[in-house]
Nucleic acid binder design. Structure first.
Length: 270
DNA sequence: AAAAGCCCCTGGATGC
DNA sequence: TGCATCCAGGGGCTTT
């Protein structure tokens, strides 16, 4: 589910309840993708100094160590009442003196991982090889252009890979390529410079707009306050196979690329 | 080295 | 109603 906008919306919602808070206790449910990497009791008493994000990871900076949280396909983080009983899909609870942060993740592709810092242990491994932040200063047109030139992969799959730019997942990859007018099957190194210009602008625009709308809610995702996102209602092509293209009226196509669905307009995207 | 495929897991929608 | 099949916002690991 969660792509960069959903993770960023979540991060923003966590700052007020968590920044500066002291961890009182931690409860773990069923196993997630990886073990936590530290005894839960050892986290008690530590302070959350900052709530950051890198790609699709939430990074809780502690006074000692960091906690990476990934939402996988079906995860969401909510601040819940302290006495709310844990449901069958609530697999990680972090209690501060004032709040309960709860990870709800039916499919359990998500992860919560502790490391001494972001440069060592599991965190370093997970954060290595991530591309630049699309909404940061490092995402220049020339960076995107250079990344496109180096690969013969279909441009959609290159975006999804996250080695050039992070955070563009399956929904936003289709949306961004539609907005840029680029066929998702086009080999990355065959995109023209004008196309790459449009792609660069589209990535920034679509992600920014989605964050402003609270992200996309297809099935599981909710914001920290429990509210759904609203971006999905404005999607041009994602999930709209057979519906008219908003630009030309031709039916939206769906194909499989690397076992993931891609939506696009045959007429508008070259 | 790059790229393609295979899984991890659960639940909802669809079809017979 | 019941059961089988397919599909889903990700991404690490293994195989070509």
């Amino acid at each position: 589910m969660p792509e960069l906008p959903e993770v960023e919306v979540t991060r923003r919602g966590l700052i007020a309840p968590l920044q500066g808070a002291r961890i009182a206790s931690v409860r773990i449910g069923k196993p997630l993708r990886w073990p936590l990497g530290i005894e839960t009791a050892a986290l008690a008493g530590r302070t959350i100094t900052d709530v950051q994000r890198r790609g699709k990871y939430i990074v809780l900076a502690l006074d000692q160590g960091v906690v990476l949280i990934h939402l996988g396909m079906s995860g969401s983080l909510q601040v819940s009442p302290m006495d709310a009983p844990a449901g069958p899909h609530d697999h990680f609870d972090l209690f501060t003196d004032q709040h309960l942060l709860r990870l709800h993740d039916p499919r359990r592709f998500g992860a919560v991982v502790w490391s001494p810092d972001t440069e060592s242990g599991m965190a370093a491994k997970l954060l290595a090889n991530l591309g630049v932040e699309p909404l940061g200063a490092g995402f220049s047109f020339e960076h995107l252009w250079a990344g496109l030139q180096k690969s013969r992969m279909p441009v959609k799959q290159l975006l999804l890979g996250g080695q050039v730019v992070v955070g563009v997942g399956n929904i936003y990859a289709s949306e961004v390529l539609f907005l840029a007018g680029i066929a998702p099957t086009k080999p990355a190194n065959q995109t023209t410079r004008p196309q790459a210009r449009r792609l660069h602008a589209a990535i920034v625009e679509v992600l920014t707009r989605s964050i402003a709308l609270g992200g996309s809610t297809l099935r599981d995702f909710v914001q920290v306050n429990g509210y759904a996102g609203a971006f999905q209602a404005q999607a041009s092509v994602y999930g709209r196979a057979g519906a008219p293209c908003p630009r030309c009226g031709q039916p939206v196509q769906v194909i499989k690329q690397g076992q993931r669905s891609t939506y696009f307009c045959k007429r508008c995207q070259k």
